[in-house]
Simulated scan of single mutants.
Amino acid sequence: MYTLHINDLTQQEFLSQYWQKKPLLIKGGFKSFEDPLEPDELAGLAMEEGIESRIVTNHDGWQCTNGPFEDFSPLSNENATLLVQAVDHWHPDAAQLLEPFRFIPNWRIDDLMVSYSTVGGGVGPHLDQYDVFIIQGLGKRHWRVGNVDKSIQQFSANKGLLQVGQFDAVIDVILEPGDILYIPPSAPHEGYATEAAMNYSVGFRAPNQTDLLSAFADHLIDHDLGQSRYTDASLTLRDSCGQLQQNEIEHLRALVTDAINDDDVFLRFIAEHISAPKHDKDLLPLDDEIDESSVSNYLHNYPYLYKAGGLRCIYIEQDESVMLGVEGHSFNMPIMHLTAVQALCDQPQVQTPLILEHTHCLLFRQMMATLIREGFWFID
């Protein structure tokens, strides 16, 4: 539905010259762009429990109100913006906007945030810790973007609304429908609608060390792992009993790194953590009873199997096996199922004959029964 044109750059040239390096204005990135949803539809999503939304205004100071909303009076005729996260989880047409950006690995794509702004509406000058493509839809918006500057300090303009001070702009432009801005992490930017405007932000994930280590510790606790204790059977007398010696420091460090270096432990953690859901999804668990004994007959009746909107799934290829991570769950399959697992992860819809070729294996049938029963993949 949408074809991305990155000026005169190939995808690899964009990655080499701009990705995580400097911002880029992509004029006419989507030719003859049509909005996949209307402002009223966006407001409808903002009324739903389980869908993250907020209204940001700038009248006498910045204000931020979190949804769900029954009353849209804060969305005034000027200086107001409605923002809704993870619209791709709930609106199949809007989800199509993510597809042209899948030259970036799927696991790095976070979600599609959609905003509607009245004249003057915006969220103020700010920076993000992740990459983002901002697509202009309905209306026009004036954008200023600076170069990457990791020394810029953020401050809280309002609870839940971080901003930055003034910055020098290297891009200063009014975006029209189909124009796109690429903004790398730590590049300050601000945009204000010059007329009622819709914007679509394709955001990317960038876990930090604290996120990973904290989640890894939780994984060890949840699965009763990481129980190796410090030992020092070769202990000898020393002059000072107060010193923690270098060899002891290395031994303690090894207790941590040994758990991380254990592929059986770490790869399962990564598969589950990277695929874990961040937002609710429009999943429809199957009402019919389906298990490993009936999944083949079930699939025979349908030509395609469809992936649920916003589904997080990744696979990790090993010598003798392939691990599939889906929505915080992991499945370890023999390597002979790699083509099926790859198709499930890479394609929004998979031909069922490809899946049926692998259902001679009990493990694979059990996995597919679970994936379909939970609504992660569905038939239509």
Rank of each mutant, 00 (worst) to 15 (best):
D218W: 03
V202E: 05
N247Y: 06
G191T: 10
G242H: 04
Y304F: 11
D288P: 03
L244A: 03
H189I: 09
S296G: 12
D222P: 02
L252Q: 02
I249S: 01
R312K: 09
D282M: 13
V295R: 06
Q318F: 02
L324S: 03
K281N: 05
Q246V: 02
E317R: 12
A308Y: 01
V295Y: 03
L324A: 03
T194A: 09
L213R: 08
D280Q: 14
G226V: 10
A193Q: 10
P285N: 12
Y302K: 08
E292K: 06
S240R: 12
N297C: 02
I290N: 12
D291R: 03
L235D: 15
K307D: 03
S234T: 04
I316S: 03
G242M: 08
D280E: 15
L225Q: 08
G325H: 05
E317P: 02
P277I: 08
S228P: 00
S294R: 04
D287R: 14
N208F: 02
D282L: 14
I221C: 09
G203R: 10
F269V: 10
N247W: 01
S240G: 12
P207M: 05
L225C: 07
A217F: 07
R238T: 15
H223A: 11
I274D: 04
D288G: 07
Q209S: 14
Q318W: 00
E317G: 06
S214I: 09
F266K: 05
N261R: 00
Y306W: 06
Y200W: 12
L284P: 01
C313E: 04
Y302R: 04
D282R: 09
F204M: 12
H219S: 08
D288H: 10
D287M: 15
Q318N: 06
A206M: 04
L244D: 11
A254Q: 07
D232F: 01
N301F: 00
H219G: 05
P277S: 11
G242Q: 12
Q318C: 00
G191V: 14
Q246F: 08
A217D: 12
I290T: 11
E289A: 15
D263Y: 01
D258V: 01
L267R: 08
T194I: 10
L237A: 13
Q243Y: 10
L311A: 06
S293A: 14
L225N: 14
D280P: 00
A233T: 06
H223E: 10
T236N: 09
D262E: 08
L252D: 03
N208S: 12
D211S: 05
A215I: 00
I316M: 01
L220S: 12
D218I: 02
F204G: 13
L213M: 14
A206L: 04
A196M: 09
A271H: 01
K307M: 04
E289D: 15
E190G: 14
V265M: 06
D282A: 15
V202F: 02
E248N: 07
D224H: 13
K278Q: 10
F204S: 11
I290E: 11
